[in-house]
Write a protein that binds this DNA or RNA. Structure first.
Lengths: 197, 197
DNA sequence: AAATAATGTTAAACTAGTTTAATTTTTACT
DNA sequence: AGTAAAAATTAAACTAGTTTAACATTATTT
């Protein structure tokens, strides 16, 4: 892939590790760039997840559809975030989750087929991904704690303080789904908060 | 540390990677073995987490005490599991969580000071830990989904089917905390389930 | 064997969040 | 600009889970 388009990824990577020009070139030759339109699916529940995806621009939501047909949003990914069904990716079994673009989105894809080989050739990259996942894991555990120890109102306040840019870009009913509450109740909460001020 | 006591760890590691005798010896020289009594703390909220811990025998609980003084159990770790406040460990900042032994417990400790050096000397170990964390992350995300899409009764049934050995060993009020419900409500749920059969 | 502490149960009153359904507001399309 | 579609609000009836408090059972210690 073309270096210019990969710039956001390269500067992101450089926060963790330093690649030599050769390593950078090798990496470039293996990863793929792809544009998606709003509404398009990057991964579909039931398919095997073939890529780890870095978001260059745009926004995606990752969600699970449960047995009652209800949609539960697990995460949003904007610029400089990752998205993938990690469980499906590492085991190459059918995905539990969907990833859909909620804006026109540019992604850089790390294909499953080459990633182990890339780790072998560039051990620093394995370090890089280890660190990324460590952080993702920490964030995920914190979210579990919040879901048990905070009320819906507190969780919403936390979200809107922590991710103000995301809140701007995303319809409220999706935020409700991310917070694990109904859109009606989020609407009520926002009304209450407005009165508090 | 002594090789005999490390046997469970070594066979666990061998499921992921193959170490040469020299690598194994290097690893052994860097990690520590330690016994804890029931009730002892391995990590305390507020302290910096200095080790990643592998459970050789016994059982620990990791929990967070919230602002209201309420205890929320994040995970249990039995034989062949890991425990640590990963967030505190990787950033070397004060821990959000406590780890306490709920049985007499034997741990193998991977000290923070040597782990990066160990990764450099044995890149395979970095691969090993990457894979462990990937799995932990996947499990954590699935738990978020369950906490949103399942009722308390369904979550309990899932837990008791998934971890029957853990359920045997642990008081019911701790399981309630892990499931994010009160002990009274878990008791009610168990009553209902008993009637269903 | 008795006594104490730890764990588990039951039930009534309560509350945070859901459901349903009707209405309003905002956004996108021709 | 006008229309349709998507998103957000409101409110009443409901339910899953909490709180409080009293009691029962099981382990642990002496």
């Amino acid at each position: 892939m073309n270096k210019e388009k990969a710039q956001p990824l390269l500067s992101y990577i450089s926060k963790y590790i330093t690649l030599t020009p050769e390593e950078e070139q090798l990496l470039m030759s293996q990863i793929k760039y792809r544009k998606f339109l709003k509404g398009q699916y990057v991964i579909q529940q039931g398919d095997v997840c073939k890529h780890e995806c870095f978001v260059v621009s745009g926004c995606t939501k990752m969600f699970h559809v449960d047995d009652d047909g209800q949609e539960h949003i697990i995460m949003f990914s904007i610029e400089n975030w990752w998205t993938a069904d990690m469980g499906s990716f590492i085991t190459q079994t059918p995905a539990d989750y969907n990833v859909q673009c909620i804006e026109n989105t540019e992604l850089i894809l790390f294909p499953y087929d080459i990633i182990e080989d890339l780790y072998a050739k560039i051990p620093k990259l394995e370090r890089f991904f280890r660190q990324i996942i460590e952080r993702a894991f920490v964030a995920s555990q914190k979210r579990i704690i919040r879901s048990f120890s905070l009320s819906a109102k507190e969780r919403y306040k936390y979200f809107s303080k922590q991710y103000p840019e995301i809140e701007q870009r995303i319809p409220q009913y999706m935020i409700a789904s991310y917070l694990g509450i109904t859109k009606e109740f989020l609407s009520k909460i926002k009304g209450q908060i407005a009165l508090e001020e």
